[in-house]
Design a protein around this nucleic acid. Structure first.
Lengths: 224, 224
DNA sequence: GGCGCATCATTGCGGCAGCATTGCGGGAAC
DNA sequence: GTTCCCGCAATGCTGCCGCAATGATGCGCC
């Protein structure tokens, strides 16, 4: 883990450096804003500790540039100014945390751990098939980022098929996926949905097609 | 935006609740660990404020259960215990931030903003859509720099929609975003808000429109 | 290969569930 | 007291979806 420490006071910098190293972190030290800007180009740091009072300006000025890169490197602002207004300014400027000097190194480490723990998987469960993307959580399909709107029943059919992408889905299973016990179906309503869905997939050039298997069911397959 | 407040002291809870509501947030209140556990099952909160001293145990015990779900809901721990060891324990247990009582409400709000900004990491604090600009941090909309004032519920609807700009928002998700557990709705109140919001967006020539998807939900899309 | 049956595919149509909109009144905020 | 948000109910309307009729495609059997 490589940390960028932006701090001009040599004594403070040395103390933090050694503390962090003791916890097996690799520390790069930048004493000025200019140094910091250069350092972040390398883009190798997992977190940034940022002092506000620097010889060439307020450390907060660095934050927009970091955020512009949109890589989400967490930033902890360190500062002597502990007043409420300053702390709010620090947090609102885009920092992830704010620590007023003097602070205990243990607390800094704890906050660092908290901030690093964060990128915890927010992986939405989506299934890709051809040019089609199906978001199971939000119950929506899209093609090239454009929403692919479908009526409810057709969406249910597509969901059931895409969940078993490339494998056959029994006709009975599809019916169960689309209808509940209360609904009594005495027609070829399911076929209707399949048909309409087929047309929409083709029209949208989704890159998949619904393949029927006589006497068994259906399956969704990618187009060559 | 819907927040879960886990706090047993009625006075404290009421104060925080009203402060949060003043910032147009929807607050669910859980006075005990048991209540909190029940509440988190609904999985509708964007952040959790967690007191440690609860009648049925230490609030920190809740954190592993939340993390097990791996949905990354940020947690801010509130506590009277301000000693260093406690703060470190709080952060290391998986909380995203730690605030010692007494604290200024402004600071809590600032930390909340910081913590909510994050899951995006890459998503900015303001979202632009058409001529509409929505500032997530300050919870306000504007058009061409002119404030676009909306009543509370309509603002919540717009926020939920704009956060998923161009993608569908389930009807249930909208209801969850706008109402808390206590509110019991037995009508088409949500439709009413949508309708009124539509009119205001059109009147203000906002450059976006709310598109309904029958049986599924809504989505916000840019006008051509 | 020809024939027939069973299953599937497609399309038009009509009923109705769900949605959009509006006016009204209670009630909260100031 | 006044303002305005917001839930509620009534109304009209859109379009989904079930239905049935017709055509197309396998599959077996002779």
């Amino acid at each position: 883990m490589r940390i960028l420490l932006v701090e001009d006071e040599a004594e403070m910098a040395a103390a933090l450096s050694s503390a962090l190293k003791r916890y097996d972190m690799v520390v790069d030290h930048a004493p000025t804003l200019a140094d910091a800007e250069e350092a972040i180009c390398a883009d190798v740091h997992v977190a940034i500790l940022l002092d506000r009072q620097l010889p060439d300006g307020d450390g907060l000025k660095l934050i927009p540039k970091l955020r512009a890169r949109a890589d989400g490197v967490p930033i902890i602002v360190l500062t002597a100014r502990g007043e409420l207004a300053d702390r709010i300014a620090g947090l609102d400027s885009g920092a992830d945390d704010y620590l007023a000097k003097p602070f205990a190194v243990e607390e800094l480490l704890a906050r660092l751990r908290a901030v690093l723990r964060r990128p915890a998987g927010l992986s939405p469960d989506v299934i890709r098939a051809g040019r089609l993307v199906f978001d199971l959580g939000h119950r929506e399909a899209s093609i090239d980022g454009q929403p692919f709107e479908l009526p409810r029943r057709e969406l249910l059919v597509l969901e059931a098929l895409i969940r078993r992408m490339g494998r056959t889905v029994l006709r009975t299973a599809l019916e169960e996926a689309v209808y509940n016990f209360d609904d009594e179906i005495q027609s070829n309503a399911l076929d209707t949905h399949i048909s309409r869905l087929r047309r929409k997939l083709a029209d949208a050039n989704a890159g998949v097609e619904i393949h029927g298997i006589r006497g068994v069911g259906y399956l969704l397959k990618k187009l060559p």
